[in-house]
Simulated assay, not measured.
Amino acid sequence: MRLVNAIVAAWPAGRPLEYVHAPFAAAERPPSTDPRWYAPLRRLRLPDGTRFVAGVAHEDQPLDVQRRLVRRIDELVGARVGVSTSCGLGRRTPEAAERALARIRDLTCDA
């Protein structure tokens, strides 16, 4: 979160910072399930109105595990976060990309 906080600190005055995206997965590797991995989010300092987008959605990790991760990130950030994949979909097959988009939908719709 040092990098995010540094970006926020250096952001030009008068320019809105609408969101910050943080990847938590590495391409084909799903995000960690270790709660300690996410602990630095406690130190996140975002300006009012700036959304945090967690790049946690991964099509090859169980949905219930991912829901718990998103809830944990929400708690640490202190707000409901946006959800995305760790990076774009260009390196995925069309089928994997569709599953990733479905996962984002499943994580962002109230269950």
Score class of each variant (00 low, 15 high):
Pro94Gly: 10
Val65Arg: 02
Asp74His: 06
Arg43Ala: 05
Ala79Cys: 03
Arg45Phe: 08
Gly82Thr: 01
Thr93His: 08
Leu46Met: 07
Pro16His: 14
Arg68Trp: 04
Leu3Met: 13
Ala6Glu: 11
Glu18Tyr: 15
Ala13Trp: 11
Arg105Pro: 08
Leu3Cys: 11
Asp64Pro: 04
Val77Trp: 13
Ala25Tyr: 07
Gly78Glu: 00
Val56Cys: 01
Tyr38Thr: 02
Thr108Cys: 10
Gly49Ser: 15
Asp106Glu: 12
Pro35Leu: 09
Gly90Glu: 07
Tyr19Val: 13
Asn5Arg: 11
Ser32Ile: 13
Val77Arg: 13
Thr33Pro: 00
Arg99Tyr: 01
Trp37Thr: 14
Arg15Asp: 12
Asn5Trp: 11
Pro12Asn: 09
Phe52Trp: 00
Arg103Met: 10
Val4Cys: 10
Leu107His: 00
Pro30Ser: 04
Arg36Ala: 12
Val70Asp: 00
Ile104Val: 15
Leu41Cys: 06
Tyr38Leu: 14
Arg36Pro: 12
Arg45Asp: 02
Val83His: 02
Asp74Gly: 10
Glu95Leu: 12
Arg43Lys: 12
Pro47Arg: 10
Pro94Gln: 10
Met1Asn: 06
Arg67Cys: 07
Phe52Gly: 02
Gly55Gln: 00
Leu107Ser: 01
Asp106Met: 05
Arg45Lys: 15
Cys109Asn: 05
Val83Leu: 05
Pro62Ala: 14
Arg67Gln: 00
